[in-house]
Amino acid sequence: MKKKEQILVRVRGHGDVKQQAFAIALSQVQKEVFKNTNNIMLRIEPIDIQVVSAIEKTIIERFLFVFLPRKKTLYEITLDVSVNVTFVDLSDIKFLTE
């Protein structure tokens, strides 16, 4: 009844600091796993994380396009996360009709 499967999901995150971008990417893992299956999930356990791309963008913002220039840095990260998923397969459950 209870089954295990290994799934690879690709997630993206972006933020003002590196930690925020990484945390946002990891928070997307559960959504991606639920999107790809129709079973009832019992446990989602990450096994391995690989960085596909990590981009640091620096832009210069100006007040009224001329005054007070300041640098703003944005971070984007794309990860491949390998997870072990424990789930209950609904097709294995036999329902009785009355």
Rank of each mutant, 00 (worst) to 15 (best):
55 I>E: 11
62 R>N: 10
66 V>S: 06
69 P>R: 07
3 K>M: 07
79 L>H: 06
6 Q>W: 02
92 D>R: 13
42 L>N: 06
79 L>R: 01
34 F>I: 03
66 V>L: 15
44 I>C: 14
53 S>R: 10
14 H>V: 03
36 N>A: 10
68 L>N: 14
73 T>K: 15
94 K>H: 14
95 F>G: 03
58 T>I: 13
65 F>M: 10
27 S>W: 01
96 L>V: 05
74 L>W: 12
64 L>R: 15
20 Q>N: 06
15 G>F: 00
39 N>V: 02
19 Q>L: 10
77 I>Y: 07
18 K>I: 02
37 T>K: 09
55 I>C: 00
73 T>A: 01
59 I>S: 14
92 D>L: 12
11 V>F: 06
16 D>V: 02
45 E>N: 11
88 V>L: 15
15 G>Q: 05
95 F>L: 14
48 D>L: 05
27 S>G: 08
41 M>W: 03
59 I>Y: 08
9 V>D: 09
63 F>K: 15
29 V>E: 05
19 Q>I: 02
57 K>G: 00
65 F>V: 09
9 V>A: 11
7 I>Y: 14
38 N>P: 01
50 Q>E: 13
72 K>Y: 07
45 E>S: 11
58 T>S: 14
64 L>E: 06
82 S>T: 12
3 K>R: 14
65 F>K: 13
40 I>V: 13
82 S>P: 05
39 N>L: 05
74 L>M: 10
80 D>H: 05
13 G>A: 03
17 V>M: 11
93 I>Y: 14
39 N>Y: 11
38 N>G: 07
49 I>G: 00
21 A>F: 05
58 T>N: 13
47 I>H: 00
11 V>K: 02
69 P>W: 07
78 T>D: 10
5 E>S: 09
89 D>A: 11
51 V>K: 00
21 A>G: 03
14 H>R: 10
51 V>Y: 01
35 K>G: 04
77 I>T: 04
95 F>C: 04
52 V>L: 14
41 M>F: 08
6 Q>T: 10
25 A>N: 04
85 V>Q: 08
75 Y>K: 05
79 L>A: 03
87 F>E: 06
3 K>G: 02
36 N>G: 06
72 K>T: 10
81 V>P: 05
58 T>L: 05
5 E>A: 09
